[in-house]
């Protein structure tokens, strides 16, 4: 996995609440057997009309937001299905960081597995950021994971919280399975124990 350390990019405002995984990537695109190539279908039904033409009003079709690498959005982002196609599509579109007042659990977890940084901030800070990028579309927002800061030049600086272990894995681009396989002895002895104590498993 590619490490996430710092990012300086355009941020797109998407002030809707409860953006679900069917909105992020509709089911017809789940038939792929690959992880890549879903960016063109991210937010499909909002982004394109029935004939596949771009909806001019949709934020990610507007300049400069179509080059956004940061998304600022409403609460409970990513609710619904466990489909990892949602973070795959977002990542493939080019977005590497999502800022919201809350995330659905499975989406939040899936983001980290794909090198995307989801940042939870209090609602009033999200509102401030949302207003800032709506009023100043071209401004670049800077994210520093090591320092846990969101800044815009000298104009403002916010701090965010993140689980230390998730931060460590994201900073180093660490693969979970390798980490777990280092604990193979623990797995083996656990399995020996349940074979005796709970033979029905």
């Amino acid at each position: 996995m590619k490490p996430f350390q710092t990012l300086r990019a355009v941020a797109a405002p998407m002030p809707m609440i409860n953006i679900d995984t069917d909105i992020i990537i509709p089911k017809q695109f789940l038939k792929t057997i690959k992880r890549t190539g879903l960016g063109v279908n991210a937010f499909n039904d909002l982004r394109y009309d029935e004939n596949g033409n771009e909806n001019k009003d949709f934020v990610l079709n507007k300049k400069p937001y179509r080059n956004a690498e940061i998304l600022i959005t409403g609460k409970n982002f990513g609710c619904g299905s466990s489909r990892e196609h949602a973070p795959w599509a977002i990542k493939d579109f080019g977005i590497q960081c999502i800022i919201a007042s809350s995330f659905a659990d499975i989406f939040y977890n899936n983001s980290f597995k794909n090198g995307i940084l989801p940042i939870e901030l209090p609602q009033e800070q999200v509102d401030t950021l949302m207003k800032e990028v709506q009023e100043n579309p071209d401004v670049l927002i800077e994210i520093n994971l090591e320092k846990q800061t969101i800044t815009r030049g000298n104009k403002f600086s916010l701090n965010f919280d993140i689980d230390p272990f998730r931060k460590h894995c994201l900073l180093g681009g660490i693969d979970d399975i390798d980490l777990t396989l280092e604990k193979k002895n623990y797995i083996d002895s656990y399995e020996n124990k349940i074979n005796t104590e709970k033979p029905w498993i």
Partner: peptide
């Protein structure tokens, strides 16, 4: 429910 990365993790470990 889990995502596909975790499906792989469970299959492997």
């Amino acid at each position: 429910g889990i995502g596909t990365s975790e499906v792989e993790h469970v299959l492997a470990t």
